[in-house]
Write a protein that binds this DNA or RNA. Structure first.
Length: 560
RNA sequence: GCCCCUGUAGCUCAGUGGAUAGAGCAGCAGCCUUCUAAGCUGUUGGCCACAGGUUCGAAUCCUGUCGGGGGCGCCA
């Protein structure tokens, strides 16, 4: 249909805008169409049609008229349109639109054309968006806690891509040679390397105790022999963090998460970017000296206190390198910068917002997303996990145990804004009940239907869509049409958990349809072809949603 | 003390200011000579923490109270 837009809602919106112009003339009120954003939403019930708008109720006050009267005026102003079967007033003044079979068929063929990219949005002015996530320090493996950030960040990147943006995924490596944490980590590794040679060594105070630390220590001992102990601590830091980064990279790739750039903090020190950035801030008169330290006037940009850039011992703080780092993101072409951080970085927001403004950028192009804490629970009790104590649970272990799909879905079912209690034993025990299987099973079922149909020379044909009159079929079609809208929504408010709930809903509607409507019936060729088209569209929609979640789409599934 | 998140079914959680508040799991009762029963159908279960306010309309927005979680370094 040539006048059809990609989103049905947009098409209805435009139709309404035209109608409102006419109303504005009739009521001698020119403000109407720009003062009131029109909302068009999919209805929950079939009896309310397919789409609905509340515009008449919004306008009621302005025009001092009964909403139903306005609704009636609007409906009368809408030209005859084959897209709709009917447009009617309901309830307090809703206008409900019911799609025609023709429109439904046309739109369904869009789905079949788009295939597993159904729902992707055309974007005429794509932005370069730099998304930094995970970025755990190279002093330990990726834990389940950061796994949430990995699942969320990756899914958000996929969502933004589907929304037509150019996404650049970045991992920031805190490998600075003047980092106290990393120095301590290196000392802990050296301790274990010494032990490998039976040399006595005192464990550094507050050092890192995990198994992975002794593992790295042993690896260094095996690779370099006893001579390694003659090397200085910087050498140990480099050797151990390189190994740690490889470890992290391996676990993340296994989890389906890849980055375009692994950006080294130390590189900013080496090439003088940190120093240059500091000079720039000084030149802009955004710094001052106090107690022997250099401070950033961050309160000037709304921070609750000023921040130290250079300590009295001449070492620069992370604020300084982070400033240079964010400057680098923009210099390398980012229009928009998004940082995804764990809950312990909540205090980071104020100072980073200040830093961005100190760099002369607007807060419109910078966003920090904090996902909430993952607490570890055992027998109903919260168990603290700390890298220093070695009491961590690795993401890699969880994915080995219950699988990547299961783990990702588990994380993505919840909004990033809610706390997550994680009982590992419970998660493992209940992994068979994870709804991810329910949704994947719908996909597997479709695959076998399509295969069976093909064997009998029966093929999908969306032109016979008008034969799909069953309530289960109509609900399924309606749900398929919702995906673009959900992508748009998730891209703007970062609510990627919607895809998990959406895929469950879609699977539910499919399973219900499957039970009520037999698809492959050679004696009814046209109906079969229409239902096959519906199956195929459902399959593509599921594939698209699965991709957004980073979950696989199995062709077959059998209970063990 | 200040800041962030949160309170919805027995449990875990969805819910874009809109029509009768939903799902998964758990419970109960049914459904496999039929495209995969990891499925379907029916059913039980709700002062949406509480109190005000805004609105034609509030689980949703605002204020307050109470409960839960986390963060507030010249560590990163």
């Amino acid at each position: 249909m040539k006048h059809h837009t990609y989103l049905i809602q947009d098409y209805i919106l435009k139709t309404l805008q035209v109608a409102l112009l006419e109303i504005a003339d009739n009521n001698e009120n020119q403000e109407i169409e720009d003062k009131f954003p029109i909302e068009v939403t999919a209805t929950k019930q079939i009896s309310h049609g397919d789409y609905s708008t509340n515009i008449a109720m919004i306008l009621a006050k302005k025009l001092k008229k009964n909403p139903r009267e306005i609704a009636s005026e609007i409906i009368n102003s809408i030209n005859q349109d084959p897209t709709f079967d009917k447009i009617e007033i309901a309830g307090a003044g809703f206008i409900n639109f019911t799609l025609s079979d023709k429109a439904r068929s046309e739109y369904l063929s869009h789905v079949l054309e788009a295939q597993d990219k159904w729902g992707w949005i055309k974007n005429n002015s794509p932005k370069n968006i730099n998304v930094e996530f995970v970025s755990v320090n190279p002093n330990g493996p990726v834990t389940i806690g950061s796994g949430r950030g990995a699942a969320f960040g990756d899914s958000l990147c996929r969502t933004l891509t589907a929304a037509g943006e150019n996404v650049h995924r970045e991992f920031y490596i805190n490998d600075s040679m003047n980092s106290e944490q990393m120095r301590l980590f290196a000392e802990s590794v050296r301790h274990y390397t010494s032990l490998e040679f039976g040399i006595e060594s005192t464990f550094p105070e507050k050092g890192y105790k995990g198994d992975y630390v002794s593992y790295i220590g042993k690896e260094i001992a095996d690779t370099f022999g006893k001579e390694s102990l003659e090397k200085d601590i910087s050498w140990f830091q480099e050797e151990s963090q390189t190994r740690m980064i490889e470890w992290q990279k391996r676990d993340l790739e296994k989890f389906g998460v890849k980055f375009n750039t692994w950006f080294s903090e130390q590189s900013l020190h080496d090439n003088g970017k940190v120093e240059a950035c500091l000079e720039e801030l000084k030149k802009k008169d955004l710094t001052y000296e106090k107690d022997g330290a250099t401070w950033l006037k961050s309160t000037q940009f709304g921070d609750d206190k000023d921040r130290v850039l250079v300590r009295s011992n001449d070492r620069k703080t992370y604020v300084t390198s982070d400033t240079a780092y964010h400057q680098s993101k923009f210099e390398r072409g980012a229009d928009v910068v998004i940082d995804i951080l764990g809950p312990d970085h909540h205090g980071y927001i104020g100072r980073m917002n200040a830093v961005i403004q100190a760099l002369g950028k607007s807060l419109d192009v910078f966003d920090i997303i904090i996902y909430q804490v993952v607490r570890f629970v055992k027998n109903g009790e919260s168990v603290p996990m700390r890298k220093r104590d070695g009491t961590i649970y690795e993401l890699g272990n969880l994915t080995d145990e219950i699988g990547v799909d299961n783990t990702r879905f588990f994380f993505l079912m919840r909004s990033h804004d809610t706390h997550l209690d994680f009982d590992i034993e419970l998660a493992v025990r209940e992994s068979d009940e994870n709804p991810v299987f329910y949704t994947q099973y719908a996909h597997a079922r479709i695959c076998s239907i399509l295969k069976k149909a093909e064997e009998q020379n029966l093929f999908p044909n969306p032109e016979n869509m008008h034969l799909l009159n069953h309530e289960a079929e109509k609900m399924l079609v309606k749900s398929i049409f919702e995906l673009p809208n959900i992508i748009q929504l998730a891209a703007s408010d970062y609510g990627v958990h919607r895809f998990a709930h959406y895929s469950i809903e879609l699977a539910r509607l499919f399973h219900s349809f499957y039970d009520k409507c037999k698809v492959v019936q050679p004696e009814f060729e046209e109906l079969t072809s229409a239902r096959l088209a519906l199956c195929q569209a459902t399959m593509y929609t599921l594939q698209s949603a699965f991709w957004l979640l980073g979950v696989s789409a199995p062709q077959r599934m059998y209970r063990k």
